[in-house]
Design a protein around this nucleic acid. Structure first.
Lengths: 331, 331
DNA sequence: CTGAAAGCGCTAACAA
DNA sequence: TTGTTAGCGCTTTCAG
C-alpha cells in the first residue's frame, strides 16, 4: 500500500542521466536531445514519478496554485463562480484553493494568511466584506476582484450593475408601477450604488417621482426582507406597487411577506430580483430577475489573473459583463 | 510592498539562539527555558516570521491539510458540508482543500492526484461517483466517506437512509396513498438501496401492494424527473397517488410536471422529497421532505478523520446520523 | 547537449 | 537546556 515514493534521483539513476536533465525534460525546458527526452519520459512513466510539490515550492517560491475567496459557498451564485474557476484553472495546470470566509472577518483573515503561507501565485477575491480586508493590502501576489473592489484594485471584473438596475426599473415602469420601492443591501457598496443609480435613471426616464420611503436598506437576506416588508405592510399599508430588490433572496422574502399579508403578486405588487439563482425560477410565482453571467464573470477573472501571474499585459483594469432581464411571472 | 521574507535563520540570529531552538519554541516542543521561550516568541512576533510550509512539508511529509471531494459544489447539500468541515478543521489548525469533481471521473482523478501530490494528511470523500474512484484505492492517507462508501471503507458516516425511506413511505400511506410511486436514482448505490428498503417496509406495514410501474430509476435531477413524470402522465395517465423521490430536485421536477398536466398536489398526488434543501421550502407548494443533518454528518466525519490522522482509536467504522421528516404542504 | 553542486527553509538526531 | 549539522527533493547556475 504505502510504496516508497520515487524521487527525481531515482528517475535519473534509472535513466542513466543527471537529475538536472530529468528536471529539464519534465519541465519541458528544451536543451536536450530527442533521444534523451524519450528515455527520460519513458522512465518517468514507468516509475510513476510525481514531482514533490514542496521541494519545487521551496526552490522556486511558486506553487502553481491560485486562491479563491468567497463570502458564502452555500450561495449558488458564488458556488457557480468557484466551479467555473476550478475548471478554468485546471486547464492551465493550476490548482485552486477555495476559501469560504463565511462573512466572518476573523475567519477571512486566517484564510488569507493561510493562502499567503501556502504561496499562492495569485488570488481571486469575490465580493464579501464591506471593506476589503486589510490583510490583502500588502499582498505579495496579484489579486483580481470579482463583483466588489477597493479603490486602487489592480483588476476588477463585475456585472453591469447600472444596466441591471436600469432594466429592473424600466420593467417595473413598463408594467405599470407608479410607486416602486427599492429594497437594497444597507451597506452601500459600489455595486449596490450602481444598481441604485440605474434604477433611479429608469424611473426618471418614465417621469416617476420617488417620495417617502421608496428606498430602504436592510441586511440582504430572506429573513430581513420578509420581516421588513411585513412590518411596512402592517404599519403603513401597501403604499408601493412594485419592488426591486438587490438580490433574489430578498425578493423571495418580500414575495412571501406580500402573500402572507394577502397581496397578490404581480397583480397588486410587481417584483424584480437580482442574480437569477435557481430559487427565482422555482418559487411561486416564478420571479422576474436580473441575470448575472457567472460564467463570463469567472472566466474573465481567471484570464486576467493568469496574465497578471505571467507578467503579461492586461488590456483593461476593469471588465464589465452584460446582464440581462429574465422575465418571469412577477411583473 | 514585497518585503523580504524572514526565515527561521533570521529569527535565530536576532534572538541570539540557534534555529533548532526557534523551531522548538515555535512548535511548542518543550525543552527550553521560560526565558528563551519569551525571547524567541518576542522576536517571532516582531519580525513577522511565518514558517515556510514548503520547507516543513519537505522535511516532515505532513501538510496539516485535509482534502474534501464533493461531486457538485453548487448543490446546497454538499456546499453546506464543505462549509462546516472548513470551520471544523480550522479550529485544529488544519486547512481544507476543496475539490469539486463535477461528476466527471477524469476531473475527479486529477483532483485526487493533485491532493496526494500536495501531501494532504487525510481525505473526506463525499458521495459522487457510482463506484469509488480507483485512484483512491492505494491511498497513502486515511479516508473518511460521507454518504456513499466502498465495501472496505475504513470509516463511513451516513444518514439513516432506511429510516428516511421508511418515514417517507409511512407519511404517504398515512396521508391516504394507495398507489405510491418510487422515483429514484437509476444507479442503485447502497444509500439509495437503503432508502428503497425503508420505503418498501413502510408500504408493507400498511399492507400496500406494489404492482406495475411503481418503481422507476432515472438520472437524479430536475429535468429528468420532470420529463419522466410528464411522459408517464401522458402515456399511462395518473396511475399513482403519491411519489417519493430520492432527492428534492427530482421531487420538484415531478411537482412541476404534475402541475403542467393539471394535477393538483397534494389533493390528487402527494409528494415527499429527500434532503431538505432550501428549494424544498420555497417552492410551491412547500414540500414535505426528509431532512438530512448536514452539520452532524460533517462534524462526525471531521472528528473521525482527525483521529485517523493522529493514529487514535476510532470507536466505530460506521456512523449513522438520524434523519427527520419535515412536513410541509405536499402531503 | 549534459552534469556537478549549491542551496531553498526547516526539523530532528546527536552531541555537548 | 541548547547548538551543530545532515538532508528532505528539487531547480538552476556554471562549467564542460
Amino acid at each position: 500500500m504505502a510504496e516508497k515514493k520515487v524521487s527525481i534521483i531515482d528517475v535519473a539513476k534509472k535513466a542513466g542521466v543527471s537529475t538536472a536533465t530529468v528536471s529539464r525534460v519534465v519541465n519541458r525546458l528544451g536543451g536536450y536531445s530527442k533521444e534523451t527526452e524519450k528515455k527520460v519520459l519513458k522512465t518517468v512513466k514507468e516509475s510513476g514519478f510525481r514531482p514533490n510539490v514542496n521541494a519545487i515550492g521551496l526552490r522556486t517560491n511558486r506553487s502553481h496554485c491560485v486562491g479563491v475567496i468567497v463570502p458564502d459557498i452555500t450561495n449558488e451564485f458564488f458556488a457557480k463562480i468557484v466551479r467555473i474557476l476550478d475548471i478554468y484553472f485546471i486547464k492551465y495546470n493550476y490548482s485552486v484553493l477555495i476559501c469560504d470566509s463565511n462573512e466572518d472577518p476573523e475567519l477571512e483573515k486566517r484564510h488569507i494568511q493561510d493562502m499567503f503561507d501556502k504561496n499562492v501565485d495569485g488570488l481571486i477575491y469575490v465580493s464579501g466584506m464591506e471593506r476589503i480586508h486589510s490583510a490583502l493590502k500588502g499582498s505579495p501576489v496579484p489579486i483580481v476582484f470579482i463583483d466588489r473592489a477597493p479603490k486602487n484594485a489592480e483588476v476588477v471584473v463585475q456585472s453591469d450593475n447600472f444596466q441591471g438596475g436600469y432594466l429592473a426599473g424600466k420593467k417595473l415602469c413598463e408594467a405599470g408601477c407608479r410607486k416602486p420601492l427599492l429594497l437594497r443591501d444597507y451597506r452601500i457598496a459600489s455595486t449596490i450604488q450602481q444598481r441604485r443609480s440605474g434604477f433611479m435613471k429608469a424611473l426618471e426616464a418614465y417621469e416617476i417621482l420617488c417620495e417617502g420611503d421608496y428606498e430602504i436598506g436592510i441586511s440582504p437576506d430572506y429573513v430581513s426582507a420578509k420581516g421588513k416588508i411585513s412590518e411596512l405592510l402592517s404599519r403603513q399599508g401597501c403604499y408601493f406597487d412594485g419592488i426591486f430588490t438587490t438580490n433574489d433572496m430578498m425578493a423571495l422574502g418580500a414575495m412571501h411577506a406580500l402573500a402572507e399579508a394577502g397581496y397578490r403578486v404581480p397583480e397588486e405588487v410587481k417584483l424584480v430580483g437580482f442574480d437569477n439563482v435557481s430559487l427565482s425560477e422555482f418559487c411561486n410565482p416564478p420571479m422576474t430577475t436580473i441575470n448575472q453571467n457567472t460564467e463570463q464573470l469567472a472566466v474573465l477573472a481567471g484570464e486576467a489573473l493568469l496574465k497578471l501571474i505571467r507578467n503579461e499585459e492586461i488590456e483593461k483594469k476593469e471588465y464589465v459583463v452584460p446582464v440581462s432581464l429574465k422575465i418571469r411571472n412577477t411583473t
